[in-house]
Amino acid sequence: MSLPHFQYLAPLSLAEALEQKALWGGQAAWLSGGSDLLTRAKQGLVSPEALISLKHLSPELAGLSEEANHLRLGAQTTLHQALSLPLIARELPGLAEACAAIGAPTLQQRVATVGGNLCAQTRCLHYNQSALWRAGLAPCFKLGGEVCHPGGAGADRCRSTCQSDGAVMLMALGASVVLQSATGQRTLTLSDFFTGQGERPQDIGPDEMLTHVILERPGPGLGSAYVKMASRGAVDFPLLSAGAAMRIEGGLIASARLALGAVFAAPLLLKTAMEPLLGQAPTPENLAQAAAQAGRDAAPFMIENHSTPAAWRAQMVPVVVARALERAASRAQGGI
């Protein structure tokens, strides 16, 4: 499979990269690990005039810095590097699980980056097919058309889903992202960064680069976990996933955040299902009730846009949520 023609630029500094992007705008795409972009280019889903490689920017944009009350993770940090950071392994095991769940150790994890995972496009059983396969159907919303094939006749929008493992866990951890352009900088929470629209899943301008991920310092009492269901243990995108972050103080749940992957265009944050847990002890019964409520809340999002039936995936929501909550609660109390 060959790639379409494009120009290739490899700026030597962040400032130079941002200037180039300001000139090219939406005609150029950032090239980082390339797992998502180059696959999409081969499938004819994207055809940029130019690729701006970030390969020289790793010294500026890779690695973790610990600041007074937050952590700053460079967007160019590869998954392999993230997995080797002691602080992530020790205090953010859910994030480590999510990074290890992406692709495969020798394929994606060495080159794919934390920032690239957040910027990856949403996916759908119909959209992510070859150009030849897609040519037999009317273009869908995500391709600029006016239908959603899995959504059916009544669909009024794209129903592709966010299948980025890292994004789901970072949403549960309440992370923010820094977007930098030649003229300024914005910091958005992931709830704002992810639009919830499959046609344009991220709020990032044509002149902006996602440069850093900002995380709260975890500290004692925070437990996190990421649980993924996929056909195989490596390589595959999730059929369904859950990221959970829970803080336990004095034996009671002080905060609980849960995000689902592969059900909605954004990592789906289930706030209402978690509210009854606040102030309660993390007993198996309480966690099971919250998981059951998560299943009811997620049900309307389940349509036939994956390779497994929507009904099965709906049944699995309480299962993955319960596993994620139990593991997060155990870790918040010093377990593994």
């Binding site: 499979m1 390339g34 180059l38 696959t39 692709g103 495969a104 394929l107």
Partner: peptide
């Protein structure tokens, strides 16, 4: 598409799937 591993080479000692590496 970077999912089978048959094209893996080492670039500066790091595995890279050559089919998805410019």
């Amino acid at each position: 598409e970077g999912v089978c591993g048959a094209c893996t080479v080492l670039v500066d000692g790091q595995p890279r799937r050559a089919c998805l590496t410019l």
